[in-house]
Design a protein around this nucleic acid. Structure first.
Lengths: 344, 344
DNA sequence: CTGAAAGCGCTAACAT
DNA sequence: ATGTTAGCGCTTTCAG
């Protein structure tokens, strides 16, 4: 399907030099006479010569392409990370190859292999389930620089983490200090780092006051909006209602707000709400939602920077781990629990 | 940086056959004895042989990679389109290469050339400004299947459009029928198809009732949230206030809602609002926002399908254009204008 | 049905 | 400083 393009030989012939010389011009070697250089360049210009990157990759054994494997690129969190990473990569001369897994572990392994066949120089990814050994193996056999996003695997691999525990600690503490005791947390599975860390921060906040959270109020099975809705709905309509709910993820918040609307619950009078990750929705909801925020831009940039570092330094060396801060951004979705609710 | 991988020669040697035979097995040629095949396959298996796609591309002159050039992947509209397109492409054995332009026309041309050097089989893109001749030239010289998203260029190229005019017509008509006359439209520049079409639908709705829209109420210079805020704010604080505002894009709505909040304007009592494209925000804002909706999923899928078709059929043939429907989704952000406002 | 060999476009020695 | 040449890993004639 490819057109017949001008090749380095065409340029060489037209400029009256050898292919080696053209190649040297192309790669900016110093040992080329200014005049020869000029001659070659003008031929390239005139024929709009585009070096064939595939052939270059074949020869140099690197593609300057980086694979990005992600579960759902349409999630604003991920797309923001991708954008930031792509910016850094582009700057460094790398091109980003995107693969969406759609939350399938099988697909994930397939895509790792696919990108390996396509000879990516490195990979940035966030595995679907940390515990999956097939994926772990695939990554380990890769022998490529890999950077994990918010995932902790028992293999030596670079990673960028967000400090979810600390953010969740602050969020929970905030609610406790407002007087809440019946606080629910809806977050993704503890089988992945973010879920685990959030629950840890949540429990620690209770413990710091000598309290213990109600285990029935910790819902951690998925990060989908659907799950957020289901859990919120059953919490809000159950007999033992929480006075505050923390949504551990932007999609969970979407489900939570749907349930809140359906149940005609008022925020913050009837229910205090805190979410994780700042989005258009949290900023513009009524009332604006207090969130545990972090810089997704930093996450993407750091991941890309880490990968590039790994690419340039070559294999070996201790795995690098970067922990990015989170902080509580107060808005208007939290208030002391109403007396009636507290008395229940 | 690449590891020394098992090659087709290794496999051939180990299986006691020639490289040609291994290649035939790899490509599923019928003319291979079942036994030879088995032998070769088992060696491949044993050594986890991964054919080098770069070498294959070099030889076959196609990469099975498709470039996707977009201005802002973090915009939920675009990331949803990318996701849908990627799904279809993956299904067909193509891999998506993503390039974010960040709204720079220079960068756009550079990226087109970059992806050309990397020998993409095809391109899906949405140019930043239709009028830019440098980009038009770059696309035309590409000699590759290209699919444009919501852009109309004076060159023969496939494209997928949304029927913005029709949706905007309905939206405007809806407001007019509620009694609004001072309706403002904030949308992107008419230099691009969506802006042009939206304004066309807007004007036609007025004309269908023998009316003419106030030209001061048509703001069309950008699709950023910042622009949406600025225009909304000056509309809402001006002496000649609109009773309804239509946001021509999800980011413009973000700006509009910020201005609404700042000005303490009530929706829909003081101001009716309609937006374009359904998002979490429009569904969960208070009140939920009436929108001109369309299937972004279809847009991505159709673009990918069109490209694949172009890839398989080869060059030549009339450019294909697909028009996707839009429709008005009524929610609670519109009401008749209040008397006081109407009298002004 | 299978092997041998040419060559895709480029880079990097090695010569000169 | 520049030319010559050997591959990179694969597919595809062309023979046999």
């Amino acid at each position: 399907m490819m057109q017949r393009h001008t090749t380095i030989r065409d340029v060489a012939r037209l400029a009256g030099v050898s292919v080696g010389t053209v190649s040297r011009v192309l790669n900016g070697h110093r040992s080329v006479t200014p005049e020869t250089m000029r001659k070659v360049m003008s031929v390239m210009e005139a024929h709009a010569y585009q070096p064939n990157a595939v052939a270059q990759s074949m020869r140099t054994r690197n593609t300057r392409m980086v694979g990005f494997i992600i579960s759902d690129i349409s999630n604003t969190l991920f797309s923001s990370i991708v954008k930031a990473a792509e910016g850094v990569l582009q700057e460094a001369g790398y091109t980003l190859v995107l693969a969406n897994t759609g939350e399938g572990t099988v697909r994930e392994v397939e895509l790792i292999h696919l990108l390996q066949q396509r000879r990516m120089d490195g990979l940035i990814m966030t595995v679907f389930q940390e515990g999956n050994t097939a994926v772990q193996e695939a990554i380990q056999n890769l022998r490529l620089p890999v950077v994990l996003l918010d995932r902790e695997l028992p293999i030596p691999v670079d990673a960028v983490y967000a400090d979810h525990a600390s953010g969740m600690f602050q969020a929970t503490k905030h609610l406790l200090e407002l007087g809440h005791r019946r606080i629910a947390l809806i977050t993704e599975s503890r089988l992945n780092r973010p879920g685990r860390e959030r629950i840890r921060g949540f429990e620690q906040a209770f413990q710091s006051l000598g309290l213990t959270p109600d285990p029935d109020f910790i819902c951690s099975r998925s990060l989908s909006a659907e799950y957020g809705f289901r859990e919120s709905y059953s919490l809000l309509t159950g007999s033992h209602r929480p006075t505050a709910i923390i949504a551990g993820g932007n999609q969970i918040l979407v489900g939570l707000l749907k349930a809140v609307r359906l149940c005609s619950v008022r925020i913050p009078e009837d229910l205090s709400v805190i979410s994780c990750d700042d989005t258009d929705l949290t900023a513009l909801a009524t009332p604006p939602v207090t969130v545990v925020q972090r810089s997704v831009r930093d996450m993407g940039r750091q991941a890309a920077a880490l990968l590039i570092q790994g690419l340039e330094e070559g294999p070996g060396g201790e795995p690098r781990r970067i922990l990015l801060p989170t902080e509580l951004l107060l808005r208007q979705s939290c208030a002391p629990p109403c007396e009636e609710a507290s008395r229940e």
